[in-house]
Design a protein around this nucleic acid. Sequence first.
RNA 1: GGCGGGUUGGCGGAGAGGUUACGCAGCGGAUUGCAAAUCCGUGAAGACCGGUUCGAUUCCGGUACCCGCCUCCA
Length: 482
Amino acid sequence: MTTIRLHNTKSRQLEELRPVTPGNVRMYVCGPTVYDRAHIGNARPVVVFDTLFRLLRHVYGEKHVTYVRNFTDVDDKINAAALARKDAGEPGTLEEMIRQRTDETIGWYHADMDALGALRPQSGPNPNMNCEPRATEYIPQMIAMIEALIARGHAYAAEGHVLFDVRSFPAYGALSGRSVDDMIAGARVEVAPYKRDPMDFVLWKPSTDDLPGWDSPWGRGRPGWHIECSAMSKSLLGEIFDIHGGGIDLQFPHHENEIAQSCCANESGRFANIWMHNEMLQVEGKKMSKSLGNFFTVRDLLDQGVPGEVIRFVYMMTHYSKPMDWTAEKRVTAEVKIRDYVALADLYCDFAAARLRRPDEAIVEALADNLNTHAALVIIDRMAGQSDLVTDMAVGLDFLGILGLDKLEAKVNARRATVASLGTFADRLAALREEAMKTKDFGPVDALKSKLQSAGVQVQMSKSGIELLPGPNFDIDTLKEI
RNA sequence: GGCGGGUUGGCGGAGAGGUUACGCAGCGGAUUGCAAAUCCGUGAAGACCGGUUCGAUUCCGGUACCCGCCUCCA
């Protein structure tokens, strides 16, 4: 069996994946807070961990991998958005508006991530498991966990809040490499009067009547930010599971707090084994931000005509552990590559054979080496350079989630249809050329050629004949006028 | 201020203590009515300063710059 090695943020080392339950892998990835469209930074972990999911399914078998990714649908930003709508006079209760907004956002998220070729989280061993749990469906489990933390002396209730006592957990800060004392020295912590220690964080907080809330032993309230992941991962994956992932920005405080809560509430005192974090994304060398005007969503790109496979290809060019720069130039590079792959598949891919074939071991090995997607793409390029390996290239693109075989075949067919539709122009051009060969007046040939080129058609004339292909800016409407 | 990541040829981007990364672009040639496509060939690097070493882009230390987290943004 392929040995998978992954970088564990916790140990700061490359570690061999040894599943808690041999032969079965369980992975939890922190999902989005659902209040708005996913921006291109949000999509990076989705692609990273989807790639890992695909690798795990390949190595362990589809029936032996469980992947859970939550939707956080209780959050003050969501509340604020719903309150604003209510104040604007929209009908319905706050709860209805929140539900409406979160449902809508989840729908967007699914559509956008589907376009990137990301598989929906799912469980092989338990196909009925809801692997995309919503936080609001796990309030009782959160309350139970908070009660356990209080009972074990790791949390305390104060003024309607329940707080985690960071001093009760000596390992607090281990994941992110900081000490409680150092952090307090940073002095940017909100020091609420009811906190025993400035670093103590909220597990439960009271809700006023105009905010969503649930009954609890501490009165009507709502959960703090981090507890939902601890509760949901425990409910669905158990106390101890194999991989926990997310963006590096979650390392502190989110994951640090998850570890504290889960380790202290769990009988075993343990939690996830391997912690994986993807580095951040920039845009044209700068931090993506609304004020710089370089902020955009996955949907923005899709609407601009950048296909999901191109976006995914750009993500996969950079190793997940390094900062990634989204640039227009990379987008173009990816577009050219994808177009070349489709053209090659048109010529040399045996789709029937491809559907029966396993991905090339070298590609699997590249991913097994701490998810070296760039190395995998280099192998794809090598395959593209040899006609007898193009079928393997197609299998590789499918395995990497860039272009599924069905999608690739559909693109090939679309390309063929376009080429066929160009046939009459090819015939016209051939006739003109033949005539020009005799008269030595190439004016008419060049006239038609440049018209075709301005419609985005690639004109290839050789001794053997004329070939017209759709180019990057191919426009069928311009063509009709010729 | 604390913690962490980054800096490789025009651009993107890896691995490896000493042997061509690779891709795109460029340049030269073949080919073409001209192009395109294709093929062949080719220049170009390792932020800066030290140290270890026979030898470092690769290891160690420092400096600079960029980015992230420490403010419930992946």
